[in-house]
Amino acid sequence: MITDEAPFQAITARGVRKVYSTPSGAVEAVAEASFEIARGDFVSILGPSGCGKSTLMLMVAGLEPATSGALTLDGLPVAGPQISAGMMFQDPTLMPWRSVLDNVLVPVSMRRPVEADDLARAEHLLRMVDLWQFRDKRPRELSGGMRQRVALARALVTDPRILLMDEPFSALDAITRDEMGLALARIWDTTRKTAIFITHSIREAIFLSDRILVMGRRPSTIIEDIRVPFPRPRTPAVEAEPEFNDLYLHLKASIHRTTPAMH
């Protein structure tokens, strides 16, 4: 998996902590997070709501400064927004006044004039998510799943080195969600980008990931680091493997242990 002379670890976090000061006092969003993510790994961060997963992602993206600790991307410390990161959120956050194609090009057009190469790449990505024939439509004319596929194409349009996804499928219905998981797995297989995928769906995490980090709540730290053994490319058939179920039950128990209040 080491492809060139660049550092082996794409992302490292050492003792990363985040405390927000609010009018009602300091709130500790992330108590302590230390991990390393290898180049080309798909890593899910799994945890209950409010465990600081999203904050951790924003810190990796350089959109929120860490209160203490050190974060690096490709060996360089994270200081300020990281242009090398593509992002997806829970909502597609498309611009309703732009066409599908222009929405995909937003990360480019917000920074510099769009060139022929960008258009070619946007076309390639839209074909990959099966939306090229909808390129001139407005977001309001698309379904929720289609919009989130536009957001995926947009996240990849700058050919980022890492892909950061914060519960991108959690607002979708169960069937669309499964379809999106399959689409993401298929697209990821062709790009093999280092990815952080935040979710609270255990099945989604197992199906998509090379590795799963489980985050606990109070204190919010990484309490488990598991490698997912299934080979790629994966098909829905992996869910039938006994190991899948073992892993599922194990992760479920470990998440429940972190949230005693919910019993």
Binding site: L58, A61, G62, L63, P81, Q82, I83, A85, M87, F89, Q90, D91, T93, M95, V106, P107, V108, S109, M110, R111, T158
Partner: peptide, 23 residues
């Protein structure tokens, strides 16, 4: 404006005036 959309703009290095005129 959606906070995540503004984050996205910030992440891709959009100039503040561009965020005004475009978003």
């Amino acid at each position: 404006v959606d906070r995540d959309l503004l984050r996205l703009c910030k992440a891709v290095g959009a100039r503040p005036w561009k965020v005004y005129t475009e978003v």
